[in-house]
Amino acid sequence: MAIFGDAFATAFSLLFGGDRQLFGIVALSLQVSLAATLIAAAIGLPIGAALALARFPGRQTIVVILNALMGLPPVVVGLVVYLLLSRAGPLGSLGLLFTPGAMVVAQTVLIAPILAALARQTLEDAWAEHCDQLRSLGASLMQSAATLLWDTRYALVTVVLAGFGRAAAEVGAVIIVGGNIAGVTRTMTTAIALETSKGDLGLALALGIVLLSVVLAVNAAASWLKSMSVRRYG
C-alpha cells in the first residue's frame, strides 16, 4: 500500500510544483468537458422541457429511450463518433478526428441524453405543481417552459453539473476519438489509462487524485448552491 503514499506525494509535488505538462492536461480536460457540458445543456434542457410539458403520441416511448440512453457506454459513443468523423465517414471532411473538437462532440453526445432525461424529470414535477396556475394566467406552452426552466434553475444547475462530472470522468469516448496525443488530446482520464499501461502507477494515481478533487469540488458547489436556494426561495 506504499504506492498510495507515494502517489499522494507525487500528486502533491505535481500540483504544487507547477508542472506545466500536468496543468496542460488538466486545462484541456476542463475545457473539453466544459464545452461539451454547455453544448449538451443547450440541446438537452429544451428537449427535457418539451418532453415534460408537451403531450403527443410516442412521448412515453421517447422518455423510455432517453432514460436508457443515460447508460450509454462511452466506448460505444466513441466508436460511433469515430466512424462519423473518420476520413471516410460522412463528417470526415470536417477534419475533426484526433482533435479536441472531436472529444467535445463525443462527450456532448454522451451527456446530452443525461441532461435531457434529468431535466425532464425535474420540469415534469414543476409542471405538475404549476400547470393549472400557469394555464389559468394564460401562459402558452412556450412561456410555461421558459418560466419553469427559470423556476427550477437551481435544480437544473445540479443536473448540468452531474453531466459535467460524467463528461470529465469518462475515458472510453475521448480516447477513441482524441487518440491521447500528448499536448493535443491528452486529458486526465486518457493520461491515467496510458500511465497505468506504462506501469507508472504513481503518476496515474496522482492524476486520479487531481481528477477526484475536480469532481469533488464540482459536487460540493452543486450541493452548496442547492441548499442556498432552498434556504432562500423555498
Partner: peptide, 13 residues
C-alpha cells in the same frame, strides 16, 4: 377571467 386555487402555487421569485 381569473382563478384562485385551493393550494396556490408560487414561483421561485
Amino acid at each position: 377571467q381569473a382563478m384562485v386555487f385551493q393550494r396556490p402555487s408560487m414561483l421561485r421569485r
